[in-house]
Design a protein around this nucleic acid. Structure first.
Length: 576
RNA sequence: CGGGGCGUAGCGUAGUGGCUAGCGCGCCUGGUUUGGGACCAGGAGACCGGAGGUUCGAAUCCUCUCGCCCCGACCA
């Protein structure tokens, strides 16, 4: 039993000035967390109980699935991370430090290397596999911009697991087991979520799915089809194009279009000067980029932007991708900024990538590769040839579902879990092999699975809070029942404590507000802010032998008789 | 890293060159209250983020610096 008179807690009446999102404001106001530095928070008793509840649920579901818990240090030497190149590849997001002898260390951002090496150190036979191990660990990433309180911190608690299998079928099974365990876990956490494809699968069929908790303040955007249930990260969304037949257009016509470097101005000039009656979607946008030192051109319909994140995700071989800058344009005089067209790409030695909407045989209004001139009837297959199709255009609400052709909606969400088939990347670079039946070494294939534990606190708060405060699902809440004693006599207070102890004996967790000083109103406000789902008020009803039970979830209150209080409260808790 | 904003008591804030830096919440003491963030009286708590400068005089002006928030870029 927690007692408010003893609890290390101070609630705040005003929103903290540095908080923007609801979870952040409420967790601070209700005394769950306090900020220490940007993206770094301390947990006070109520918050820490809540965090540990989530940890416990995750742990129970992992254990039930047969996965085993281990624990690595957060402070790690650089050597394993050098072996996989991540010491350099991870870049400035890695927290690095040195010991007194000048040795390089890091604060672990994720632990693939350590898990791989641990297995390598212990196991060497196919008979030892499959194996899945996990840990719950504090992770560190020096994010360029931590934000939204606890949603994106630089220090955060994460559960990460890794599966080890001898072959692809085994990996698939381990992956599916994890997926099931995650479904059970998030259901218990009381989160609404979508399971969303995260990668196009173009790369060796490596499956990857994200568990996204929809909410307005989420920082991930994803696509959802309300008709068939298809859900995908925008990067993984594939464009659905209804095939069209095109008549053969006349030969290319070059037109004078002075001062029309933008699509908008082009459409204006075409319609006013040439009576073309077109929209931006009839024009072709040619975006020049440098992809690992090679110039490439990406073609999208003129009414769409190129989504660089999507493009990057769909160009797996490319490490660095950036837009042409003025210097690039000045180095290649044949490419006229604002008047680029695909028809001379071969001659210019530029690879053409195109959005699937640039269909075979389609024709477009586009740049003429001369200043102040555009060309029309520029036809795919005749005047230019696409080298590769790529998902590069921004995804919009109303685009067609790739599975059932229904217009999709776009939603925002917080990523709370991610499962994916890592394959042999780490096993290879760290040389994790086991002997197979024939005594031959085979490289182990791995899966990697994460749940943001501290982030889940915020995600739940975002999804469940209301105007007056937090509102926790029962298993997550810092207690099952919040008992408020009111009045100036001793009786409600002794009674409240009595009920508290009886409920504890019956297996419920309770928080009793036994403070004598604050008025009833203050205690009600605090109870609502703190968000324990069942609030019991012991006060003026006592003379009639009744107390009041409030349910934050159904937003109802009932008077119940003192004599049956324990069973009735238990029933309400159970009903949640 | 680019753009914008902000640092004044534990929290929220007022104060744009001139008295002892003001108010609300919270905190302490005493009293009245006790079912919706009560009231009265008294009190503690701030080197105004830091350094340097201008000035008779700086929270206030200038320079530098540190920190924080938001948008963007970035994010296994």
């Amino acid at each position: 039993m927690l007692r408010m008179s003893q609890l290390f807690l101070r609630t705040l009446r005003d929103d903290p000035a540095d908080a923007e999102v609801a979870s952040h404001k409420l967790l601070v106001r209700a005394g769950y967390i306090r900020r220490i530095a940007a993206g770094i928070y301390s947990w006070l008793p109520l918050g820490y109980i809540t965090l540990r509840n989530i940890e416990r649920i995750v742990r129970e579901e992992m254990d039930r699935a047969g996965f085993q818990e281990v624990h690595f240090p957060a402070l790690l030497p650089k050597e394993p991370y050098e072996a996989t190149n991540r010491w350099s590849e991870y870049g400035p997001d890695l927290f690095r430090l040195q010991d007194r002898r000048g040795g390089d260390y890091l604060l672990g951002p994720t632990h693939e290397e350590m898990f791989t090496l641990m297995v390598k150190g212990e196991y060497s036979s196919y008979k030892d596999l499959p194996l899945t191990i996990y840990q719950i660990q504090t992770k560190y990433r020096d994010e360029t911009r931590p934000r939204s309180g606890i949603i994106r911190g630089r220090e955060f608690v994460m559960k990460d697991s890794y599966s080890f299998d001898i072959d692809d079928a085994g990996l698939q099974k381990s992956y599916d087991d994890h997926r099931d365990a995650y479904i059970k876990t998030f259901n218990r956490l009381g989160l609404k979520y979508s399971i969303v494809s995260a990668m196009s699968g173009a790369m060796g069929g490596s499956a990857s799915e994200e568990f996204l908790a929809p909410c307005d303040t989420g920082e991930d955007t994803y696509v959802l089809c309300n008709s068939c249930g298809f859900a995908a990260n925008v990067e993984a969304m594939s464009t659905k194009v209804l095939p069209q037949k095109f008549d053969t257009p006349p030969a290319i016509e070059v037109l004078d279009t002075p001062n029309t470097p933008t699509i908008e101005s082009l459409v204006e000039v075409m319609n006013s000067k040439y009576q073309a009656n077109i929209t931006a979607a009839d024009t072709l946008k040619n975006i020049l980029l440098i992809a690992d030192d090679q110039a490439i051109c990406v073609l999208v319909p003129g009414d769409r932007e190129v989504d660089l994140k999507r493009l990057q995700a769909n160009l797996p071989g490319i490490q660095e991708l950036r837009l042409f800058d003025d210097e690039d344009f000045s180095k290649r005089k044949e490419l006229v900024k604002g008047y680029v067209g695909p028809q001379d790409a071969k001659r210019f030695g530029i690879t053409l990538y195109a959005d699937p909407r640039i269909q075979a045989g389609s024709h477009w209004i586009t740049g003429a590769n001369q200043a102040n001139k555009h060309a029309r009837f520029v036809t795919e297959g005749r005047d230019f040839t696409i080298d590769h199709y790529v998902e590069a255009a921004e995804v919009r609400a109303g685009d067609l579902c790739p599975r059932c052709d229904t217009p999709v909606v776009i939603d925002r969400a917080i990523e709370i879990g991610h499962i994916f088939q890592l394959g042999r990347k780490y096993a290879q670079s760290l040389d994790l092999t086991v002997l197979d039946k024939d005594g031959k070494p085979v490289v182990v294939t791995m899966g990697s699975y994460g749940i943001g534990i501290s982030r889940a606190v915020a995600a739940i708060a975002e999804q469940t809070h209301d105007e007056i405060g937090l509102k926790w699902p029962r298993e997550v809440a810092p207690a099952d029942v919040h008992i408020v004693a009111t009045g100036k006599d001793d009786e409600p207070f002794t009674k409240a404590l009595e009920i508290g102890s009886e409920l504890e004996r019956a297996g419920l967790r309770t928080l009793v507000d036994d403070r004598r000083d604050p008025s009833a109103g203050v205690k009600f406000k605090d109870a609502e802010l703190i968000g324990i789902p069942v609030i019991v008020v012991v006060g003026k009803g006592l003379v009639n032998g009744v107390i009041e039970v409030r349910n934050r979830w159904t937003n109802t209150k009932n008077e119940i008789s003192l004599s049956s209080a324990i069973t009735e409260i238990q029933a309400v808790v159970k009903s949640l």
